[in-house]
Design a protein around this nucleic acid. Structure first.
Lengths: 214, 214, 214, 214
DNA sequence: CATGAATGAGTGTTCATTCAT
DNA sequence: TATGAATGAACACTCATTCAT
């Protein structure tokens, strides 16, 4: 069931890393294998040689990333020391951190989802989403059983709100900065700022949506 | 002041329409002018002839769409017969309708935002977003003055939640259907269903976020 | 035998004139019919409409020019008041004037001669050259009979020197000016200067070549 | 100081050679890269691959040729065994040989000079002409100092006569043959014939122009 | 008589990929 | 294992020309 994580050579990792960067900046079609090869400091032919094709390279990028990204919420579910809402909050922080830290890759993911759906990459994304949704569903249901959460919660819409809000803020960074006069913030400063803002906003949204508290 | 809407010929409209469709399906770079010409049933050369270049065609697509899309909430603001929350609700329905009706175009818009920012198209999008934000800001502030809305509302984050949630649901359509066992719904049926769901979800989110009501 | 000179309309003349100018500046292939149409202030389609094709337009340009250019030396030959050398000198001045006055057209002529030879335009040029050569041959032979000119003159080589020298000076104008520090001369000033220089140089060359005088 | 002659591969040389031929036959614009590739027996893409662009290929053609063509008259100037007139005669033979041997390339050179002047190729030609003129100027001045040559010689006009006459004969080959009934001569026979004729004609012209001899 | 619209062939160039070494 | 050389297909675009009006 579990896919084996492939051990890549240094050059292969350099290629994957460069591809990830360039794909997110200029898109899949907008990036040539020559660009990737140059960025990675390897010969053009190496890409076909190692990965078979440009498409397969894209898959490799996703393969590697998605295996890293599976939300580790299994332990979270088992933890009896904290409330279910606290677990949700940890989940939110976790997701915001992941997205902000790896904006580049998330941009590729969004781009791929927007395009046609029948690609190997789209399948990988779908798989990832399914796994995550199952875990979260379990968490919410546990909260409902314990009486901490309301009945009749549309988990998918809440997930869409979580993912969508974070995505929107990240891709609209320039707009967001301009409107909030944040032009003089450095990238780390901005990340810190937006992380806090997003976290608070989403936690509030989830709290009032999930719980019976006023 | 207001930019004149250009009157296009039937062929020009066919090209714009085909371009809109293909750009959203396979991206700008992934779509060749030959594809567009074939889809529109015109000669390849017509695209350069009418629009000058592929880039300019993209701009024309956006120019036409964005002029159609400016939210008409000015009248909404003036209306004294309804509460501010009702105005917000109308706004939500309006946005959901727009996005669901014109999924294709919204997909292009998302793609363009994800890529580099210094294109004429990105400028058009930014302009559109600024205009809309101003109107909404006004609406929220009016609601705050009247005491209907809470103080200290982060309008941009709320907008991100609105736009992001809708985007997320639309681009994850397949995932959404699969998870909710909606595979047997026709496209119109699905649209009706998702419109209602999204509208209710977002109205609830805005209500509990904006107002002091329990 | 004699080809009828066609009477062109004002628009046709405008096209021919513009074509002549642009062909000499950027060459036949380097000039598009759109360029010509714009320069002449007429519709693109007019060129095909009036002249059939771009090639035919080129022929029309030559047809018109070459009929204008046939050296009128027949009368010169009949004149008994002046010596044969004086006739040659008049011929030289005539040729220098023609070339300098109509540099643009002569450039096209040169270009056409350099290219492949089996075009209608090349045939027109050949015809023109033949006619002129006959007249000059007669003039030289008359001079030889009268004892004014040497025997064994290679008329074709002398003609090549005449035509070649003038051509060379005209196409090397920039080089000529730079080397002789004539940068501050206006076009009319330069033309006056070069006409005088060329005339004297060639007359001297012909005198010492043709005559027995020291 | 001296530009390094680039070592080209066999394929590169084939391309340059084919380009030289076709450019002289049908002009720069009249020759497509596909024509060149076919003539050279290589793939179309190789031209961009090796030379970057069609323009750059043209420059490469000139770069290679002009470095070959710089008149080697420095040694001639140092030689004290022969008179200055003999040096001039050697120069004439040298130039006639060069032009007749490399008619194709000289045709391109002429075409380029006729067109607009601000191209890299035009700059290369100008440079070549300047270098050659300097050497010749020195030779003539030395002859004048020694009393062998007349004062007041317009070197540029004499050069124009040399270059122009040879050019004219070469580009008018068909006309020349037809007029002198040389149609049955093979190309080598014609070349031998014209070389001798041109050489004698020009030597005579220079002798009577430069020296005080009868 | 004149033209805007439209076309198919052709342009130079870039692409991902293959292959001989 | 690794790569420079090479390739055919595709690219966006321009061309001279045609045609319906």
């Amino acid at each position: 069931m579990e896919k084996q994580t492939i051990a890549y050579s240094e050059k292969q990792n350099a290629i994957i890393h460069s591809a990830e960067k360039l794909f997110s900046q200029t898109g899949f079609d907008g990036t040539s294998v020559r660009d990737i090869a140059q960025e990675a400091g390897v010969n053009v032919a190496m890409i076909s040689y190692y990965f078979g094709s440009k498409d397969k390279l894209m898959e490799a990028v996703f393969e590697q990333k998605t295996t890293q990204m599976r939300l580790k919420i299994e332990n979270l579910l088992l933890n009896n020391q904290i409330t279910h809402l606290e677990k949700v909050n940890i989940l939110i922080d976790d997701y915001v951190d992941k997205f902000v830290d790896q904006q580049e890759f998330h941009k590729i993911m969004m781009r791929e989802q927007i395009l046609e759906q029948n690609t190997p990459v789209a399948a990988l994304i779908l798989e990832l989403k399914k796994r995550n949704l199952q875990s979260i569903k379990k968490l919410i249901q546990d909260g409902q059983k314990s009486g901490e959460f309301k009945k009749h919660i549309d988990i998918m819409l809440m997930m869409s709100t979580l993912v969508g809000t974070v995505s929107q803020v990240v891709i609209s960074k320039r707009f967001y900065c301009e409107m909030n006069h944040l032009g003089d913030l450095t990238e780390p400063e901005y990340q810190k700022y937006i992380r806090k803002k997003l976290s608070a906003h989403l936690k509030n949204l989830f709290k009032i949506t999930l719980t019976n508290d006023i």
